[in-house]
Design a protein around this nucleic acid. Structure first.
Lengths: 211, 211
DNA sequence: TTTGTATTTGACCGATCGTTCAATAATGAA
DNA sequence: TTCATTATTGAACGATCGGTCAAATACAAA
């Protein structure tokens, strides 16, 4: 019997996401958010409790987007090539989007990260990405694309660090050429620590194989 | 003939630095800064023009500290071992200090980085670090510690990315063990792309050699 | 000791912050 | 049509924001 909402929450969240992403939690105001979403203040408060409630919803939505972006890594044939393409696509999106870094990383450096719930969400998000990387690496160990004695979590953390390190590099004046060199180094120098034959680029057409 | 200052600017800047570092430019208020420095508002404004003026001074001071931290890399004998120790010391300091990342990186993600002067300072700071890394790598190329055909700027950017990537890793829930794995990978997998003999840890006592 | 000059002090500015109140509007159930 | 319930609207809340004003203060040159 009550009056129905004139908006869908998901739509509001998606409009608020880039605002938070660009400016950070402290860096954007409720007015910024009402202007971006088209909602009145009170409607926003009705739906999301307060600014932090909206931000939490935005973080969840962001995580959902991250999960979707990880889908190419979930496919059975996805190996190092897919991983590299993932890193490249994230970097490309960050460049075009004009946000300087992953929202999880940005948020972790924001004072709002003192809040335990926010911090938990951020850390869980990062862990999901690293777990997806680890999944690929484990597959590559069975493949032979990566030495079987590789420290999976360690290598996943390594690629995760390379990804966000490239963001930091670009954000602090690094050139695209330098970022490309980083990527090359990360994917050329990492597979051959154990096997005798250091031939790189060996399993070229491994993606889209049988599952 | 005028009344002398009751404080040294450098002292104020050093007290303001951790405040900005922890909370970011937008995240701390003038009141935070007056409380941390012990100065009254007007004295602060007299000395630094405005909030951004103080922040600029803090950034310069931070850069000075970075330069000092780079000194061990400037010494003639400093090689890959010194570089690795540098990365480790930065990480250790970030852990003890409780700021989540390099102030340059944090600032680059802050809305204040839209200001051209701030952005320039941040990028110049990052470039100085990368240049110091490159200096070491060049030395190592002559040493033989690193292949002579190495892309110096690229490898410097790589280690720079690894450093800040580890920060991001830890900030988003990565474990110290994972960070250690990243560091190992960065320093074990990088030297041997060109030379035939993949013996690592060869030039052990290269530091503190003749200059 | 007088005087000029800059610092210190503390109150104060308008603007904006996140948040809320009260009135109005719109719906489905009765 | 009436009622109960929630959404919307727009004004307003106290607190805090960055920044400033004006008087009192302390020094050095004269």
């Amino acid at each position: 019997m009550p009056r129905p909402r004139a908006f869908r929450e998901s739509e509001i969240i998606e409009k608020a996401l880039p605002v938070f992403w660009r400016a950070g939690y402290e860096g954007c105001s409720i007015t910024d958010l009402t202007e971006a979403t088209g909602l009145q203040r009170q409607s926003l408060y009705n739906a999301f409790q307060d600014k932090q409630g909206l931000f939490s919803a935005v973080l969840k939505r962001y995580r959902q987007g991250v999960e979707e972006s990880l889908l190419p890594l979930r496919v059975p044939g996805a190996g190092l090539h897919a991983l590299r393409m993932y890193l490249e696509s994230v970097l490309a999106m960050q460049r075009t989007g004009g946000f300087g870094a992953c929202l999880f990383v940005k948020t972790s450096l924001d004072p709002i990260a003192r809040d335990a719930a926010i911090r938990d969400t951020v850390e869980a998000g990062g862990a999901r990405v690293r777990a997806a990387f680890a999944q690929v690496i484990n597959r590559c160990k069975k493949n032979g694309e990566v030495p079987a004695n590789t420290d999976t979590a360690g290598h996943a953390a390594y690629l995760y660090a390379v990804l966000h390190g490239m963001s930091a590099l670009i954000a602090t004046g690094g050139t695209p050429k330098q970022a490309a060199a980083v990527l090359d180094k990360a994917f050329s120098g990492s597979p051959p620590p154990a096997p005798a034959k250091p031939n790189h680029k060996a399993p070229k057409r491994k993606a889209k194989e049988r599952h």
